[in-house]
């Protein structure tokens, strides 16, 4: 049963920011696909919510040259319905495709998925591989933070309680690039990720010009395997170097045992999936 809670329903962004500014423990509510189960399961203690349902100005997909910006209220279904995301951020599109189930996809938002801070949030590894940035707004102004610097620890981020994440943006990947995402889970629909891997490889003249590797569900936060990325940049990739990079990525993992999988399995699959995705990506660009 849902506990009683307060809900304000602002119809504009300005009103929503105002509602968040006033009080202490007030939290925004978008698709509520995590929040409602958490309230029912008594994992969520907040009892004062600001609904973003009426804040339609946060629901958009915009393009400005190479820059793509998603309003925070954009749903997974919106991402899949858009004609361009598949090429503007292929890994994000892939993540949205296998995100939960159809019902959840019509409600769950990109802002909500980023802000929940869960290590298994599927859009986050994908967004990290395109160097996404997030805009955080409050009544006192707004700031832009690299998504890579957004998370501090398990379900903790730099977002202040009076701030609202209002948009996510990134530059369209270079021409000759591959951007892939793989979700290992216990079933195909409505599944929580056991190991999530996203990679981006760009190449020019047979050399890797940019490498991004991000892993989900294998540490307290989603993270970029920066040591592995450094190994790849500027080199012509082969089996040995890919294996080395995958090993470096796995070394950066700090997984736990839970009811979905053991830490050991997560670690091993983080390695083999990273190796596989890098191999596939390199094949596409070389």
């Amino acid at each position: 049963m849902l506990p009683p809670f307060d809900l304000s329903q602002p119809q504009s962004l300005a009103d929503a920011l105002q509602a968040l500014a006033g009080k202490g423990d007030t939290r925004p509510l978008a698709g509520a696909t995590n929040l409602v189960p958490d309230l029912r399961g008594k994992r969520e203690t907040c009892r004062d919510f600001v609904s973003l349902d009426g804040v339609n100005e946060l629901r958009y997909i915009k393009r400005d040259g190479d820059r793509v910006t998603l309003g925070a209220r954009t749903t997974m279904a919106d991402i899949l319905d858009d004609s361009g995301i598949r090429t503007d951020a292929p890994a994000l599109y892939a993540a949205a495709e296998i995100f939960a189930g159809r019902m959840v996809r019509t409600a769950a938002t990109i802002g909500g998925n980023v802000c929940c801070g869960s290590p298994s949030a599927d859009t986050v590894p994908a967004l990290l591989t395109v160097d996404a940035e997030v805009t955080l707004s409050s009544v006192s102004g707004q700031r832009t933070v690299a998504l890579d610097e957004f998370y501090i620890d398990y379900k903790k981020s730099v977002l202040r309680s009076d701030e609202l994440l209002t948009s996510v943006s990134w530059n369209v990947p270079p021409q000759n690039s591959a951007n892939l995402f793989y979700k290992l889970a216990r079933r195909k629909g409505d599944a929580i990720t056991v190991t999530g891997v996203a990679v981006m490889i760009a190449a020019e003249d047979g050399v890797c010009t940019r490498a991004r590797i991000a892993l989900g569900s294998v540490a307290p936060t989603v993270f970029r395997a920066s040591a592995a990325e450094d190994l790849l940049a500027g080199k012509a990739l082969d089996e040995a170097i890919i294996e080395q990079a995958a090993r470096a990525a796995a070394d950066q993992c700090a997984p736990i045992d839970d009811i979905r999988a053991s830490a050991d399995y997560r670690l091993q699959t983080a390695f083999s999936l990273t190796r596989r995705l890098l191999t596939q990506a390199w094949k596409q660009v070389s």
Partner: peptide, 11 residues
Amino acid sequence: YLDDRVPTFPD
């Protein structure tokens, strides 16, 4: 049903 993994349609 989130963690009792009954197959879903995609499965």
